[in-house]
Simulated scan of single mutants.
Amino acid sequence: MVVASPTERIEPIELPVVDLAAERSTVMKRVVKASEEYGFFNVINHGVPQDTIAKMEEAGLDFFAKPLAQKKLDFGPGNPFGAYGCKNIGFNGDIGEVEYLLFNASDNDQFKNIVPSNFRSIVRAYRDGVREVACEILEMMAEGMGVHDKWVFSRLIRDCDSDSVLRLNHYPPIMLNRDQCCCYKDDNDHTQQQQQQQQEVAFGEHTDPQILTILRSNDVGGLQISLEDGLWNPVTPDPSAFSVNVGDLLQVMTNGRFVSVRHRAVTKWNSNRCRMSVAYFGAPPLDASIVAPPVMVTPQRPSLFKPFTWAEYKKVTYSLRLGERRIDLFTN
Rank of each mutant, 00 (worst) to 15 (best):
I44D: 02
A22E: 14
F41H: 00
R24F: 01
A34D: 08
K33T: 10
E36G: 02
V43T: 12
V18E: 02
P12F: 05
G47K: 09
N42E: 13
N42I: 06
R24S: 13
P49E: 09
N42F: 00
L15Y: 00
D19Q: 06
M28R: 11
V27T: 15
A22N: 10
V27C: 11
V31C: 07
Q50I: 02
V48S: 02
V18I: 14
E11G: 01
N45A: 00
Q50R: 10
F41D: 00
N42G: 04
H46D: 08
E14Y: 07
T26H: 03
S35A: 15
L20N: 10
A21R: 11
G47A: 05
G39Q: 01
Q50S: 06
V17W: 02
H46P: 00
K29P: 04
E37R: 09
E37I: 08
I44R: 06
Q50N: 07
G47T: 09
K29T: 14
Y38K: 08
H46G: 00
E37F: 06
L20V: 07
I13D: 01
A34G: 12
E36C: 10
E36T: 15
A22W: 00
S25L: 13
V32P: 02
R24N: 15
Y38R: 14
A22S: 15
L15C: 06
G39R: 00
V17R: 15
V32A: 05
V17Q: 13
R30Y: 05
F40I: 10
A21T: 13
D19M: 05
M28V: 13
Q50E: 08
G47Q: 00
P16D: 12
E14C: 14
S35E: 10
V32F: 06
M28F: 01
A21G: 14
M28G: 01
G47C: 09
V27W: 07
I44H: 07
K29Y: 08
V48C: 06
I44T: 13
L15I: 12
E37T: 12
V31Y: 00
I44Y: 04
T26C: 03
D19C: 05
P49Q: 08
Y38D: 11
D51Q: 11
E37G: 02
N42R: 14
V48Y: 03
I44M: 12
Y38L: 11
R30S: 10
A22H: 10
A34Y: 04
V27N: 06
P12N: 15
Y38N: 14
S35M: 11
E36L: 03
G47L: 02
V17S: 04
H46W: 07
Q50G: 13
L15M: 10
D51V: 06
P16S: 14
A22C: 07
V17T: 09
I44V: 15
D19E: 08
V32M: 01
A21L: 13
I44F: 03
G47R: 06
E11S: 14
G39W: 03
L15G: 01
P49L: 03
V48F: 04
T26K: 09
Y38S: 05
K29M: 09
E14A: 11
G39A: 02
A34I: 06
K33S: 08
Q50V: 07
R24H: 09
N42K: 14
M28C: 10
H46L: 04
E11T: 14
V32L: 04
L15E: 00
N42V: 02
S25A: 15
K33H: 12
A21P: 07
M28W: 02
E36D: 06
E23Q: 11
L15N: 01
K29W: 08
V27A: 14
T26S: 11
K33P: 02
P49Y: 09
D51T: 11
